[in-house]
Amino acid sequence: MKNTALKIRHLIKYFHDPSTFQVLKGVSFDVNKGEFLSIVGKSGSGKSTLLYVLSTMDTDYEGTLEINDQLLTGKSQNQLAAFRNEHIGFVFQFHYLLPEFTSLQNVMLPALKLGRLSVDEIENNAYNTLRMLDIEDQAIKKASKLSGGQQQRVAIARALINNPSVIMGDEPTGNLDSKNTGAVIDIFRELAQNHKQTIICVTHDNDFASRTDRTIEMHDGRILNSLL
């Protein structure tokens, strides 16, 4: 049990707009610590919806979600925000950065919010992370002035800055060329293996999926060949 990072049981979710429609139809699975997991499936099968629930941002669901042995279902928005800040790094499907801030500031903000380290240390870490993703040269550019792929890499750097125990990405390499995609996968593998950080990525890219530890396939709100 100690080795389980995420424990998801019987997730059910409905959308009510425009008409009531069940997106998740009882999803259950576990993810181990240090595991690099990929989720694949057809467009509209509910991958993003599932990931929003896992990220603790979506609280409108039935079933339970535990991360690092903490039951998160039913916690208040502010408690969840604090939990996200410390434990979860998230890369959205459409790389959401703050356009008025520089790349560096975007990466630093979650760490400044956490307030564990001094501003200098945070800045130093942010530079290192940007360098790891090969966009150090864009550090002091406004986020709105970056290309799509550059923005996505800054978003990945931001997801990593607090050394979260769980990193989630919704097609985090969707805008990257194969060289950069390879680099990101290497980074994720390294984090999972050497730092025991858990990685969950939604992807359409079969090469990406094949380089992860395990792949879950979603179909119409359900997980195929699930053991649970």
Binding site: S55, M57, Q77, N78, A81, A82, F83, R84, N85, E86, F90, F92, Y96, L97, L98, P99, E100, L109, P110, K113, L114, R158
Partner: peptide
């Protein structure tokens, strides 16, 4: 509104 959502996603609370 989008940026506020991003901040909240990164862990900023309603109070922040």
């Amino acid at each position: 509104i989008k940026e506020i959502a991003i901040l909240k996603a990164q862990g900023f609370s309603g109070y922040d």
